[in-house]
Design a protein around this nucleic acid. Structure first.
Ligand SMILES: NC(=O)c1ccc[n+]([C@@H]2O[C@H](COP(=O)([O-])OP(=O)(O)OC[C@H]3O[C@@H](n4cnc5c(N)ncnc54)[C@H](O)[C@@H]3O)[C@@H](O)[C@H]2O)c1
Ligand SMILES: NC(=O)c1ccc[n+]([C@@H]2O[C@H](COP(=O)([O-])OP(=O)(O)OC[C@H]3O[C@@H](n4cnc5c(N)ncnc54)[C@H](O)[C@@H]3O)[C@@H](O)[C@H]2O)c1
Lengths: 256, 256
DNA sequence: AGGCGCTTGTGAAGACGTGCACAAATCGCG
DNA sequence: CGCGATTTGTGCACGTCTTCACAAGCGCCT
């Protein structure tokens, strides 16, 4: 976690973009806004209201406005937001003006799918290199890229100026791979292996774990089943009627 | 969300689970604790302290204790938690005592990888059916399962009592597939397509979007680069030491 | 039995995130 | 030129989550 908040320079008369220092929750939503905006642009929309964009992104419109207000005032009251301008601004804030090079380590079952995914390219990234430790896989060509041995990582990382590393190896190898990535200067890692990675301060790790997602769904499934099964709670008072239609739970949005 | 648990009956002679109604943030972490606990059990540990488990799960120990306290008091002061007992409790709360059936729709690039993934089975789930709309793929056998046409979903869903649907189709087809899943009674969906799904109240959707993860990393990468470029802010400090060996295990955990 | 060290469980405080509600700003039109 | 319709940007209150700090409980050793 980044904790050191520089207290000084509040007004900050800086003329430059000035690093807005966005709330983390906002950062996590910006990509979704960006995707929705691209959809709108592709369908010919020139402007969009906060209400419209919020619906397209699946969030509350007040939240969307507050999020965007952190980037500056790029909307026009009474009109809405200019789609092209907003795309530009969000991409700028997310650092997508340069196409970042991604290295994928572990070209197995999952790695193959990722290597062949074109959603990377269309959203600001370039798979620059594939690595594996299995000699049987080295040399294989996927989508125009040759799989290299992981020992070549230092050389290739320098050549391609890798910005982000993706780990798709078994969990047992993930920490070692992470160490190797850090060693060659990678400071952002996306980890698909089901394990906790230990990295130096300053290195960011995000984790995607499919089984965890399913287990969270399982919890809610379990809870829903229990609720309809035995609606009587405690011993007295509040006799939540089992009608089944009186579901008070509002929007079902779970987690982030 | 309601939080008031029954005020009386502290000893709680109740033998039944009793629906703890956990905070969502806690639910999202329980699977990680569970995974860490299984690792501990496999390496012969019988008990573990909150500190130890917290480290293994990559969280703060106070947070872990508070999370576990929501399930009840399953620890022993001065000793720690019984690993086997805690596994049992967490699995019970998450509804993993029954092996839930999962249907995977869209057996393309990504779908193939998911269908062949054994991490499902070992963590409480069973891939019960594969579906695709492409006649060319229907009939193909993957990992012992035959790909069926998506039109067979109603029949198969009933036969296998599908609990969770996984969508791995292109975004353009995702909403239609979601509708079909809801239609046959599925109330939990894991969506890999980069789009917002609209579902009725009572249906839970979780989304995994690889490009979003990368873009969030990109933001932090961008910010880190800007900071080192112009460190004039405040007193600066933090001169990222290149040594590389001073790995403080302070995880950089971003977002959730 | 009693004391000591260790660990849990939790109250309290603060940080963070959310959503309402409304003033301010802008456009279009008569 | 002014007015009403529309939509942004934000102050404020509320709820959720995190973290600290410590009393209470437990086992072990003397
Ligand atoms: N397949 C899926 O759908 C899926 C889903 C979620 C998570 N995961 C996780 O993703 C990871 C990969 O899964 P998979 O199914 O592709 O496994 P896999 O065994 O098919 O592929 C792993 C690949 O990593 C390579 N590898 C092993 N050690 C390495 C090292 N030190 N350096 C470089 N490469 C190395 C192996 O040679 C292999 O090619 C696993 O941790 C798995 O738990 C997979
Ligand atoms: N491949 C990846 O690594 C990756 C990563 C992240 C996200 N995604 C997303 O996952 C989804 C699938 O990606 P992919 O690379 O596997 O695509 P793909 O084109 O290889 O596979 C899509 C499959 O869905 C099937 N399909 C299409 N319409 C259908 C329908 N109505 N019902 C049932 N099946 C249908 C197609 O026949 C095809 O087999 C896409 O939305 C993609 O954006 C993929």
């Amino acid at each position: 976690m980044s904790q050191h908040r520089h207290p000084g320079a509040p007004g900050s008369a800086g003329a430059v973009p000035a690093l807005p220092d966005l709330p983390e929750a906002t950062v996590a939503r910006l990509p979704e806004y960006l995707r929705a905006l691209h959809n709108l642009a592709d369908t010919g929309h020139e402007t969009v209201s906060s209400e419209g964009l919020a619906t397209a992104a699946g969030v509350n419109s007040a939240k969307l406005r507050k999020d965007l207000s952190h980037l500056g005032s790029y909307g026009t009251r009474g009109v809405g937001y200019d789609v092209a301008l907003l795309i530009e601004q969000i991409e700028s804030v997310l650092g997508l003006t340069q196409r970042r090079a991604v290295a994928l380590v572990g070209v197995g079952n999952l790695g193959h799918a990722l290597a062949g995914y074109d959603g990377f390219a269309s959203r600001g990234f370039r798979i620059a290199a594939l690595f594996d430790a299995d000699p049987g896989r080295v040399g294989e060509e996927i989508n125009g890229l040759v799989v290299r041995h992981v020992d070549e990582l230092p050389r290739v990382a320098a050549e391609e100026s890798i910005a982000i590393g993706v780990i798709a190896t078994p969990a047992s190898a993930a920490q070692r791979v992470a160490d190797q990535l850090v060693e060659v200067g990678v400071t952002s890692i996306l980890n698909f292996a089901p394990c906790v990675l230990s990295v130096p301060e300053g290195v960011d790790v995000r984790k995607v774990d499919l089984a965890i997602e399913l287990q969270i769904l399982s919890f809610h499934e379990h809870r829903k089943a229990s609720l309809t099964a035995l609606p009587a709670t405690g011993g007295s008072a509040l006799t939540a009627l089992p009608g089944g239609l009186a579901a008070t739970d509002s929007q079902e949005a779970i987690g982030t």
